[in-house]
Design a protein around this nucleic acid. Structure first.
Lengths: 141, 141
DNA sequence: GATCAAAATAGGAATGATTCTAATTTTTTG
DNA sequence: CAAAAAATTAGAATCATTCCTATTTTGATC
């Protein structure tokens, strides 16, 4: 792929993000996710970054993904009991799972909506994380 | 437990619910869930209904749960990648997972709130199912 | 109530995403 | 550079769930 190393410079990724040292493997995982809207699984990440790092192991991909999630650099998304998927969008948002195509779409909240405004939470509740998932289909219009 | 069979009559469960024939095993699964607020896992259901049906198998519990879910008699609830849990509350609601105690609480919507009102869904979307899960803790007040 | 077909169940094997373990390599620190 | 810490690798282990197949139960029909 490379003709000239200098022209092959890919998106610059800092040496550290949110206190997490960005090793080569973490960079590749992160770079791939940043360019994806498809919410890939760990295995899909693995297959893809093997192109750049042929010796990478699946365990490392899991380690990287976990580290990135824990440092709030990416998000983990779960649909029922399917394999976890990973998402670079850190804005508060939900996910719509289109059953017809199997694709997943981010779903924004309408402006000014605050999740905790619409739910009857027990008093003194500290919410750390919210996950909203929708299943359905895009009707042929 | 039984002194007098007649007095031991438990909650009457119809022979059929939503088109699903209520076999003995399905009855036991359903009856147990109806009396529980704890959102048990398949295995917890299994352990519990073995008291009434010593020969029941875990596979059957899974079969029963799936049948009940598919006929919209109970709901399946997933937290991240933890074992699925089951819930007899059919009202539209979310779940709050208290990390301190490990307990799960149903969360109602405030009156008049319509989920689709607050989300920016793609046009022509048919939503079949919504799942809202919250993780956090009940602060000591 | 006997008979046949369909549905449900039981038990155990198989699956598959994820986690764990131990050994090796890389990075950081003194 | 040496030692310690962190990250990576490969493969084994885990465990919830599904699958398979034989058996049992149920429902329909006579």
């Amino acid at each position: 792929m490379t003709i000239n190393g200098l022209q092959n410079r890919q998106t610059e990724i800092p040496e550290e993000i949110n206190g997490l040292r960005m090793t080569r493997q973490r960079q590749e995982v992160y770079r791939f996710l940043m360019g994806e809207r498809t919410h890939p699984t760990a295995n899909e990440v693995f297959i893809r970054i093997k192109e750049a790092l042929p010796n990478v192991s699946l365990a490392t991909v899991y380690n990287c993904l976990e580290a990135l999630v824990q440092h709030k650099i990416i998000r983990q998304v779960n649909f029922d009991r399917e394999p976890s998927r990973y998402c670079p969008n850190l804005d508060e948002h939900g996910h719509f799972h289109d059953e017809t195509t199997g694709t997943i779409h981010d779903v924004k909240f309408k402006p000014g909506i605050n999740l905790t405004d619409i739910l009857e939470l027990p008093p003194n509740t500290v919410i750390k994380d919210i996950e909203i998932t929708l299943r359905g289909q895009l009707a042929a219009s």
